[in-house]
């Protein structure tokens, strides 16, 4: 693996997902219907992964992802691979649109690697750039599944945490240096008892782990949840800021935030491409608030890029990387 030096100040990264590159969706469907075995699927999905990796490298991202080309849905993907789950039943998302919410029916068990192979492959073609190992967190897995087995949320979240830890151990054994746990469900329930429940699970996931420990949280009531999560056993929170107009920043300062910050500076829900000047302005704004140093700031999008057209996603990454470069000269 060729050496690649991640910049000391304002390294750039992504939250994880990238637009699905054909034939990724088709492969996922064939895998689900049994037309493809897991092994065949893993082999064929390498095509879309290599495209996603190429886009990130060309855009100038320092710490990249595999683009989550294998994952149609951040919960269903794991539910389909962890023992104890069965395919879900239909629940409504809005209007007359439904999705199948997975159901836990038996004791949960890790039986095989779920994201390691994609990570290994992405790393092999990353030209030395570190690839983040990204996995859906236990709180989100719990909240976005139904449970017919445990009946006790604490017991359930700890079981999920053990499975996630097992997968992360595999990743770290293969050399992963950055581990990110995604918890979008947390900010929808911004109460202390919920944050404490996740903390217990994160202790299981991160205890003694020899890698950068990151938790991604987005949307919802972030400002309400922040005070309850400052003592989490993590090195970095990766947060959505642009979409909520950076209203979170004064809270971070007020609470004496001292971890690294994954600084979401482009809106993944908007087709408008933020200019280099705009993004540079957001970085300057953070620096002028004077509570965090440039070596603790990881510049990235608000959230996964998967809902954007590929060209827009790539352009957003490119401008973000360019802005970080300019900021490095100044700060």
């Amino acid at each position: 693996m060729a050496g690649y030096e991640v910049p000391r100040k304002f390294p750039t990264t992504v939250v994880g997902s990238y637009p699905k590159i054909p034939p990724a969706m088709e492969l996922i469907k064939k895998r689900r219907s049994g037309e493809l075995s897991e092994e065949e699927f893993r082999k064929l999905i390498k095509g879309p992964i290599s495209e996603a990796v190429k886009d990130q490298i060309e855009a100038g991202i320092d710490i990249i992802s595999d683009g989550e080309q294998s994952r149609e849905d951040m919960v269903v993907y794991f539910a389909e691979r962890v023992q104890g789950y069965r395919p879900g039943d239909w629940v409504r998302i809005f209007d007359n649109v439904y999705f199948r919410k997975p159901i836990i029916v038996g004791e949960l068990k890790w039986t095989r690697e779920m994201i390691v192979e994609d990570w290994v492959y992405a790393t092999s073609i990353s030209m030395g750039r570190p690839v983040k190992g990204i996995i859906t967190g236990p709180y989100t897995m719990m909240e976005w599944s139904f449970d017919l087995k445990y009946g006790d949320r604490r017991e359930l979240i700890i079981e999920l945490a053990k499975i996630i830890r097992r997968e992360i151990d595999e990743l770290v054994a293969r050399g992963a240096r950055y581990i990110q746990v995604d918890e979008p469900a947390l900010s929808t329930r911004p109460w202390r008892e919920e944050a404490e429940l996740l903390k217990e699970a994160l202790d299981v996931i991160f205890k003694g782990l020899d890698a950068k420990r990151i938790v991604h949280i987005c949307y919802g009531r972030l400002e309400k949840i922040i005070p309850y999560i400052l003592d989490y056993p993590v090195d970095q929170f990766d947060l959505e800021l642009k979409n909520s107009n950076f209203r979170l920043l004064p809270y971070l300062k007020e609470y004496g935030y001292d971890k690294e910050l994954g600084y979401g500076v482009v809106d993944v829900h908007s087709l408008q491409i933020e200019t280099v000047e705009e993004i540079k302005g957001y970085i300057d704004m953070l620096m002028k608030m004077d509570f965090i140093g440039p070596e603790k700031v990881y510049v990235d999008p608000d959230c996964g890029l998967k809902r954007l057209p590929r060209s827009v996603a790539k352009a957003k990454m490119r401008n973000l990387a360019e802005a970080a470069k300019l900021a490095r000269e100044e700060w």
Binding site: I93, F94, D95, T188, Y219, G220
Partner: peptide, 28 residues
């Protein structure tokens, strides 16, 4: 479709726009 919609449909001077999360649910 949601708790407001039949009333929105039945009243003048109100219509519907985009989706918003309905409290802490994965429903909009």
């Amino acid at each position: 479709h949601d708790i407001f919609r039949p009333f929105v449909d039945a009243w003048r001077n109100v219509t519907v726009d985009g989706l918003l999360r309905y409290f802490d649910n994965n429903f909009f």
